[in-house]
Amino acid sequence: MGIAVDPTGEPPAHGPARRFARAVVTGGAGFLGSHLCERLLNDGAEVVCLDNFLTGAPANVAHLLPDPAFRLVRCDVSEFVHVPGDVDLVLHFASPASPLDYLEYPIHTLKVGSLGTLHALGLAGEKNARFVLASTSEVYGDPLVHPQPEDYWGNVNPIGPRGVYDEAKRFSEALAMAYRNARGLDAAIVRIFNTYGPRMRPDDGRAIPAFTCAALRGEPLRVHGDGSQTRSISHVDDTVAGILALAASAHSGPVNIGNPDEMSVLELARRILDLTGSDADIEFVERPVDDPTTRRPDITLARELLGWEPRVHWREGLRTTIDWFAAQPGIHDAA
C-alpha cells in the first residue's frame, strides 16, 4: 500500500485521498536517501534511485536491488534527469551534506543545489508529481534566534567556507517556491537538522561518526573549541518519518524536522565514550570558521501540521549507530 495524502493538509491518518505509487529519490544511495528508498519500498511504492555516487555508495542500497520495485540509476542530476513512466513523488536529496564533502566539492555542491534542483523540479512538473526539497538547518547559519523557527531568515556568511552549502540550499528553497507560486507545482521544503544512524560514512567528518570511530579505536575524540557549542541530533528513523509525513500532506513548508533535545558537543562526545565503554581521551582542537554556536529546531509546525515528533531516544539511537559502526570491516584499525 502506498503513502497517503490528504488534500486538506491533515496528517495521513485523518483521511487518505491520494497514494504515491512511484517515487524518484535523487541522492538515493546516500545515507539519508537510502533510508528513504527503503521506507518507501516497505510502504508499497516503486522507487527509482538516482545517484552519481560522489558521496553516496551503491552498497547503501545493495540490499534493495533484489526487489523488483526498486531501480538504481547512475545519474548526475546537475547534468540531466530523465525517468520514463509515471512518477507521483520526487524527493530531491542529491547533495554533499557534510562539511568535509562540500568543502572538497564546492562547485558540485553549488551545481546540484541550483541546476540539480532545477532539473528535479522539471521532472516533478513533467510528471505532475509532489516534490519535496531536502533543505537544511544550515540555512539558519550561526543563528541569532534560539531555537530556530521556520520564519527566522538566518545569519549566513555567503562567502565563508560553509557558504557553498548554505547558499546552495537557500537558492534551492527560493527555486522550489518560485515553481510552486509561478507554475503551481506541488512543492514542499523540509529543513533537516543533524541526522545520524546506520550507513553514515566513517570518514564524513560529522561529529557522531568521528567520535564513534575514534572511541572504537581508542583514539582521542577531537572536540572543536571548548565543546560548548550545541547540537540537536535526530535519529534517521525519526527524520525519515517526518520527511514522508510532509510528503504525504499538502503543506508547502518549510517545516523543521529534527529533535529539540539539545546538547553540547562535549556532552555528545562524553555520551559516546560512555556507550562504547572506551577509555579514549578528549582532545580540544581549533574550531572551524563559521561553526554554529547553537542549533536547535522549533518543531511546533511539524507537531501541529503533520502530527510528527521524534520518538527515538538519544541513548537508543546512539547505541544502534555505534553497533552498526562496530560491525563494519576495518573500523577498529587505526585511522
Score class of each variant (00 low, 15 high):
37 C>W: 08
161 P>R: 04
16 P>K: 09
23 A>V: 11
246 L>R: 04
39 R>L: 06
131 F>W: 13
253 G>I: 09
263 M>G: 02
166 D>I: 07
123 L>S: 07
324 W>E: 04
290 D>E: 13
311 R>W: 00
313 H>F: 15
30 G>H: 07
310 P>Q: 01
144 L>R: 09
189 I>E: 00
114 S>M: 07
66 P>V: 07
128 N>F: 09
132 V>D: 00
300 T>M: 11
93 F>T: 03
15 G>L: 08
188 A>K: 04
332 H>L: 13
125 G>E: 02
264 S>R: 08
183 R>C: 02
106 P>I: 00
147 P>M: 09
308 W>E: 01
312 V>G: 07
154 G>I: 01
298 D>R: 04
139 V>A: 02
162 R>W: 00
177 M>I: 10
148 Q>K: 02
170 R>H: 01
82 H>W: 03
82 H>K: 14
56 G>A: 13
66 P>I: 07
242 G>R: 04
48 V>H: 09
217 R>E: 00
254 P>M: 03
7 P>V: 04
80 F>S: 12
26 T>I: 06
126 E>D: 12
7 P>A: 14
108 H>L: 08
3 I>D: 04
146 H>L: 11
299 I>C: 02
234 S>Y: 04
179 Y>G: 04
201 R>C: 08
155 N>L: 14
261 D>H: 14
174 A>V: 05
252 S>F: 01
320 T>M: 08
169 K>E: 01
187 A>Y: 03
133 L>C: 03
260 P>Q: 05
262 E>N: 11
180 R>V: 10
86 D>E: 13
233 I>V: 09
151 D>H: 13
227 G>S: 11
165 Y>G: 00
159 I>T: 14
171 F>Q: 02
104 E>R: 10
313 H>Q: 15
116 G>I: 03
267 E>D: 14
72 L>R: 05
284 F>Y: 09
109 T>V: 01
161 P>F: 01
103 L>G: 09
179 Y>D: 03
126 E>N: 14
26 T>D: 02
17 A>H: 08
315 R>N: 12
259 N>H: 06
63 H>L: 12
109 T>E: 00
214 A>I: 09
195 T>R: 10
42 N>I: 07
144 L>I: 14
208 I>N: 01
229 Q>M: 15
21 A>C: 15
268 L>W: 01
323 D>C: 02
219 E>L: 13
128 N>S: 15
301 L>M: 15
92 H>T: 06
228 S>G: 05
281 D>S: 14
105 Y>Q: 11
330 G>F: 11
136 T>G: 05
203 D>Q: 12
137 S>E: 02
150 E>G: 15
132 V>W: 00
307 G>Y: 11
33 G>Q: 07
303 R>E: 08
252 S>W: 05
60 N>F: 08
53 F>W: 09
90 V>D: 02
